[in-house]
Design a protein around this nucleic acid. Structure first.
Lengths: 210, 210, 210, 210
DNA sequence: TGCTAATCGAGACGGTACGTCTAGTCTTTTT
DNA sequence: AAAAAGACTAGACGTACCGTCTCGATTAGCA
């Protein structure tokens, strides 16, 4: 695990040493969760992992690449399947908030978003990752459509986008400690809308303006 | 304006020289829009503005403070008032996307969010700013509530939060070029919900789950 | 006096304020004796004296000028007159060593010499001062010549130069704590020479080599 | 030699690159002789040597250390051995004056003395160096004692101290252009004394006062 | 079995930027 | 008219990282 510094490792020959790779990823995670994004430097990771800087650069061409792999090593938040779209989406958000709050994942992801603002590679990787997650999250909506709970012409990924955006923004502005009621209300707006029932003329006609 | 470097300025006595302050803010904006967040350094701003670094540090204790003031110098995106909440919110989002896309504001704000991930002062300033903007955006919802368009128990700021989150996330992942239809659909989900009308049992009862 | 900082003074109108001049000189001396030459800056003096930098620059165009005036405010080491040149010179040296050792004069003079290595004005002032002091010290030799103790063709200023050089060098290399015997021996060499009496062929013929 | 800037150099692995060290020392010497002590900064040396500042700080913790090594790279002035102490000492002084005058050594040594007034490390190094040189110069006197030219109880190092002090002081006050006759006279005083022969009672009894 | 090639930790390299300090100049306000 | 105050440009200070490079050692796989 390497609390302060990993043990010294030697080369295991003309191939990648998985011990080193692990030590580096673990060190990266540790540095990030202890010193935050501002203290996250390749030097610091190398020191912590007892690795040479070139070893890091050999396998991860940039800070972004390292961040991405660290983030992807961590387990994903699963999407619930309760048979009710509102409960599913709210449960997903609450799981996600808790995951970010209680593990180093939140820090890692924040850092990745920050890095993406100055590093094109990180931006591309983040876009890719986000797209995949939207698809994954969207499946909750697809399931609801399949069982007739959600209107057929709803864009599942767009819904996932709205849900994820809410989570991202709360992460990036240190508002992960929101109450459950707030999350439930936000999801309720998304599922049921905010219009007064009497005002509801035509539902889900994205072209019209009513 | 100072395309590459401002003219040399002298002190105007024992008080802040507004010419220098202007030159610095303009230089900061220029550096940000030309070199992006990764090229944005106090040194670069000082060079561009023909200012001494201590002059910058005297008035802006950190990169974050400078970013904040640059952002706040730029004009705000106004909230439309068409008498229809859906048109209002969609119009607001489209204005915001266009503003971020077509001016340097987008770059400035991205940088500010990134900086907030490593600088507590920036985080606090950003939180403050975002809160104010949510209140501002929320007024569109309040107006709709007043005219009976939106249900009375809707949390206007939470709606604004959802709308702004969508915008932020698209900015941070370089998706400002979305089609108008996407924005309209997202807003439509928020106003009318995504549930099938036949499935809609009780609307806007944040406690119940139907 | 101003132990840490002098009291605030106001302008006394369109003429030099002697209180300020005094406060500045005293502050300069204090800074020099407390922080040494390395801590001696115009800024530090201005802070200590509660004076503006321009006030200092108006009256003392450079650090050197300030150093010179500080040094000249301090009392001179007097030349003894015992009727014996050896006792006079040795006494003078011991007085000088003690003066430098026990007051801040040593620090001031060291600083002045150091400053003269990078500032032409200081160099000129130091040259001037040193010339004057050589003449002054040389008077001991002149008196000895007058009373027939020292050979008539001896260059009094050159003797003073040798004596002063010994003192300067000891000051500059932190060797002011030399024993009295060492000083006496050095002076004895100068007065009586180091040659064995039997080897002494012609005395004081600067052209010959014997 | 590198007149304006050395060529770019790369690392030669995890050990000191002597090319860089040389380039830095040469640049330091060049800066010193061209811009003098006041223009001698680590930045200027780094620029001139095409070296990074950290490379300089890695090997020379202070300006003083760099000055010392620059000075010690230069060749020493040798002590003549003519069989006559007066000629030896005068010759040594004239060589030293010429060396300081005609090479950059004078500037380097002046700077070192100046630096020693504000930097303890430089002071220690200078003290050490001076002690060694006094021993070296003193050997001329020891030889003269051995051949019976100089009295046996003369302190050779003290004589060397007097001679060196004269040289140092002339260097530090820009008086290296003194005439040969002055140097010869000064040495003559030291060897033969300045007393009138008739006044010379007891020679070389450092305890008595005559 | 001995050679080649890739990997490892290590750390120096030329650089850029950091945030602080001082230099010396300038201007307004106060006396 | 000069003092006081403090802002101004300019640039050096010493440190932290950047990403690259070379080293010497270690070891797997090929010859």
């Amino acid at each position: 695990m390497g609390e302060i510094a990993a043990k010294a490792r030697k080369s295991i020959g003309a191939r990648r040493n998985p011990e080193s790779a692990d030590a580096i990823l673990e060190a990266a995670e540790a540095v990030l969760s202890e010193a935050g994004y501002s203290g996250f430097s390749i030097e610091a990771v190398a020191r912590r992992a007892r690795a040479g800087k070139p070893t890091i650069y050999r396998w991860w061409p940039s800070k972004a690449a390292l961040l991405i792999e660290v983030y992807q090593r961590q387990k994903r938040v699963e999407t619930p399947d309760t048979g009710n779209i509102e409960a599913d989406l709210a449960g997903f958000l609450m799981n996600l908030f808790a995951h970010w709050r209680d593990t180093s994942s939140g820090n890692v992801f924040r850092s990745l978003v920050a890095e993406a603002q100055s590093d094109a590679a990180a931006a591309a990787a983040l876009a890719d990752y986000a797209k995949g997650r939207r698809a994954h999250t969207g499946r909750m909506v697809e399931r609801a459509k399949a069982r007739g709970e959600v209107a057929a012409d709803v864009d599942a990924e767009l819904v996932a986008d709205l849900v994820a955006s809410f989570a991202w923004t709360h992460l990036l502005t240190n508002r992960l400690d929101g109450e459950e009621a707030t999350i439930r209300a936000a999801i309720r707006y998304l599922t049921c809308g905010i219009l007064k029932p009497t005002e509801r003329k035509g539902v889900l006609d994205p072209r019209g303006t009513s």
